[in-house]
Nucleic acid binder design. Structure first.
Lengths: 140, 140
DNA sequence: CAGCATCCTGGGCGATACTG
DNA sequence: CAGTATCGCCCAGGATGCTG
């Protein structure tokens, strides 16, 4: 498999405190690192799907409507590589593979849940803001 | 400006509790909504940059290394549309425009900070996981 | 079933030139 | 200064066929 085709992957952040005048990369770098692994909606979907317990490849494919086989594989590999998800192969016939969140993955999922809460709390507000903005634009 | 070119924009999530067997969209939908607004690294960078207080267009352009003028504009418009950032024009010559986080934007920024904390806490672990994974692959 | 490799296309994004 | 409009490139990602 070719490298560097899925998300950025190449983020090397320099740790340490920020100083005034720094470019924002210094500050947003850690956030960017997060995005590098969960910034795509597929990653999120996989994490959420696996949160309830171990889940198989085809189950994921069925549960996450619209994902292509290719992207599911790619996403799983990346999450596995980052140690957010574990992959267990049962040498049966036909083969059976289960994916489950790791400790770190579980923790991440909890933070994502926080964001979910935020989104739900402000869903209406944001939607209204959009409508208002668009109306204002249309009015000229 | 053309519509629908920046991120997805078209997410209509159905609220309400989940039921077993639901596709994961139902559960991840709110998360996806979040990503629709802050899923790009540029959005994050802008939010973080504006977190310290009102900031001007050119300041943003300078602070966020690598962003194109086009993307900065697009990102700002979207954040403004969602009511996450406010835009204030001072009718001077030359014109002066200041961007600042709204209440909702500030709150979001706090959740992003949580994610940052998570990322920093596990940076080393994740990096090691990657190295191990790559090594295992290389070994065959 | 799980998943790798190949082909191919759309649109996201950078670069640039122009305006009030 | 703070944008907008236009052009063109590139690659993320969908579709698909092949294996163990």
């Amino acid at each position: 498999m070719e490298e560097g085709t899925f998300l950025s992957q190449g983020n090397t952040c320099v740790p340490g405190p920020l100083r005034a005048g720094d470019t924002v990369e210094r500050g947003a770098c850690a956030v960017t690192e997060v995005l590098d692994r969960v910034g795509s909606k597929w990653s999120i979907m996989v994490i959420v799907s696996a949160a309830a317990g171990p889940i198989r490849f085809t189950e994921l494919e069925r549960k996450i409507t619209g994902i292509s086989r290719r992207m599911l594989t790619l996403t799983l590999r990346n999450l596995e590589r980052d140690g957010l998800i574990s992959r267990t192969v049962y040498p049966t016939a036909p083969p059976k593979v289960e994916y489950a969140l790791t400790e770190v993955g579980i923790e991440l999922n909890e933070y994502l849940a926080q964001l979910t809460t935020w989104a739900e709390r402000h869903r209406t507000t944001i939607h209204q803001a959009r409508t208002a903005y668009d109306a204002a634009r249309a009015a000229g």
